[in-house]
Protein backbone atom coordinates (compact mmCIF):
# COMPACT_ATOMS: atom_id res chain seq x y z
CA UNK A 1 0.00 0.00 0.00
CA UNK A 2 1.18 3.51 -0.77
CA UNK A 3 2.95 5.02 2.25
CA UNK A 4 1.57 8.46 1.42
CA UNK A 5 -2.00 7.24 1.79
CA UNK A 6 -1.25 5.77 5.22
CA UNK A 7 0.31 8.98 6.49
CA UNK A 8 -2.28 11.31 5.01
CA UNK A 9 -4.72 11.26 7.92
CA UNK A 10 -1.89 11.69 10.45
CA UNK A 11 -0.58 14.92 9.02
CA UNK A 12 -2.75 17.27 11.06
CA UNK A 13 -1.86 15.90 14.54
CA UNK A 14 1.82 15.72 13.52
CA UNK A 15 1.76 19.34 12.42
CA UNK A 16 -0.06 20.53 15.55
CA UNK A 17 2.36 18.63 17.79
CA UNK A 18 5.37 20.11 16.01
CA UNK A 19 4.04 23.64 16.35
CA UNK A 20 3.24 23.02 20.00
CA UNK A 21 6.81 21.92 20.65
CA UNK A 22 8.56 24.53 18.54
CA UNK A 23 6.40 27.59 19.11
CA UNK A 24 6.34 28.97 15.60
CA UNK A 25 7.54 27.50 12.34
CA UNK A 26 7.44 28.22 8.61
CA UNK A 27 6.53 25.84 5.79
CA UNK A 28 9.96 24.71 4.67
CA UNK A 29 11.12 24.32 8.27
CA UNK A 30 8.18 21.99 8.95
CA UNK A 31 8.99 19.75 5.99
CA UNK A 32 12.66 19.58 7.06
CA UNK A 33 11.83 18.88 10.67
CA UNK A 34 9.46 16.03 9.83
CA UNK A 35 11.99 14.49 7.49
CA UNK A 36 14.69 14.80 10.15
CA UNK A 37 12.57 13.35 12.98
CA UNK A 38 11.44 10.39 10.91
CA UNK A 39 14.90 9.80 9.41
CA UNK A 40 13.52 10.48 5.95
CA UNK A 41 10.65 8.01 6.32
CA UNK A 42 7.97 10.69 6.12
CA UNK A 43 8.43 13.35 3.49
CA UNK A 44 5.69 15.97 3.56
CA UNK A 45 5.27 17.53 0.17
CA UNK A 46 4.42 21.20 -0.13
CA UNK A 47 1.31 20.06 -2.02
CA UNK A 48 -0.01 18.46 1.16
CA UNK A 49 1.45 20.91 3.66
CA UNK A 50 0.36 24.34 2.43
CA UNK A 51 -3.31 23.54 1.83
CA UNK A 52 -3.41 22.07 5.35
CA UNK A 53 -1.71 25.12 6.88
CA UNK A 54 -4.09 27.46 5.08
CA UNK A 55 -7.15 25.48 6.12
CA UNK A 56 -6.06 25.42 9.76
CA UNK A 57 -5.38 29.14 9.62
CA UNK A 58 -8.83 29.82 8.16
CA UNK A 59 -10.38 27.62 10.88
CA UNK A 60 -8.66 29.64 13.61
CA UNK A 61 -6.47 26.73 14.73
CA UNK A 62 -3.30 28.48 13.58
CA UNK A 63 -2.30 32.10 13.38
CA UNK A 64 0.25 33.46 10.98
CA UNK A 65 2.66 36.35 11.03
CA UNK A 66 4.89 37.56 8.26
CA UNK A 67 8.44 38.67 8.71
CA UNK A 68 10.97 40.26 6.46
CA UNK A 69 13.92 37.84 6.13
CA UNK A 70 16.72 39.47 4.21
CA UNK A 71 15.41 39.85 0.71
CA UNK A 72 12.13 38.03 1.12
CA UNK A 73 9.06 37.60 3.28
CA UNK A 74 8.53 34.59 5.49
CA UNK A 75 5.24 33.39 6.93
CA UNK A 76 5.42 31.86 10.39
CA UNK A 77 2.64 29.74 11.86
CA UNK A 78 1.83 29.17 15.52
CA UNK A 79 -1.01 27.61 17.48
CA UNK A 80 -3.89 29.76 18.68
CA UNK A 81 -5.56 29.08 22.02
CA UNK A 82 -8.13 27.03 20.17
CA UNK A 83 -5.26 25.33 18.34
CA UNK A 84 -3.70 24.15 21.59
CA UNK A 85 -6.99 22.44 22.52
CA UNK A 86 -7.22 20.96 19.04
CA UNK A 87 -3.68 19.63 19.35
CA UNK A 88 -4.51 17.71 22.55
CA UNK A 89 -7.59 16.24 20.89
CA UNK A 90 -5.90 15.37 17.60
CA UNK A 91 -2.83 13.77 19.22
CA UNK A 92 -4.97 11.72 21.58
CA UNK A 93 -7.08 10.51 18.64
CA UNK A 94 -3.94 9.54 16.77
CA UNK A 95 -2.60 7.64 19.79
CA UNK A 96 -5.89 5.75 20.12
CA UNK A 97 -5.73 4.94 16.44
CA UNK A 98 -2.16 3.65 16.77
CA UNK A 99 -3.14 1.47 19.75
CA UNK A 100 -6.10 0.05 17.86
CA UNK A 101 -3.82 -0.78 14.96
CA UNK A 102 -1.44 -2.51 17.35
CA UNK A 103 -4.31 -4.63 18.64
CA UNK A 104 -5.24 -5.59 15.12
CA UNK A 105 -1.72 -6.31 13.95
CA UNK A 106 -0.48 -8.05 17.09
CA UNK A 107 -3.51 -9.53 18.82
CA UNK A 108 -2.86 -10.87 22.32
CA UNK A 109 -3.41 -14.61 22.48
CA UNK A 110 -6.60 -15.51 24.37
CA UNK A 111 -6.53 -18.41 26.84
Amino acid sequence: MNKKVLYKGCLEPILLKLLHENGRMYGYEITRKVKELTAGELNITEGALYPLLHRLEADGVLEAEMENIGNRVRKYYSLTQNGRKEKVKAVSELENFAQTLQLLLNPKPSF
Binding site: Y26, G27, R72, R74
Partner: peptide, 14 residues
Amino acid sequence: FDFRHELTDHIAEE
Protein backbone atom coordinates in the same frame (compact mmCIF):
# COMPACT_ATOMS: atom_id res chain seq x y z
CA PHE B 1 -0.60 37.23 -3.04
CA ASP B 2 -0.38 35.25 0.22
CA PHE B 3 0.49 31.98 -1.47
CA ARG B 4 3.21 33.39 -3.72
CA HIS B 5 5.14 34.88 -0.82
CA GLU B 6 5.16 31.53 0.90
CA LEU B 7 6.15 29.60 -2.17
CA THR B 8 8.94 32.05 -3.04
CA ASP B 9 10.38 31.61 0.44
CA HIS B 10 10.06 27.81 0.22
CA ILE B 11 11.87 27.55 -3.11
CA ALA B 12 14.47 30.15 -2.09
CA GLU B 13 15.35 28.25 1.07
CA GLU B 14 15.66 24.98 -0.84
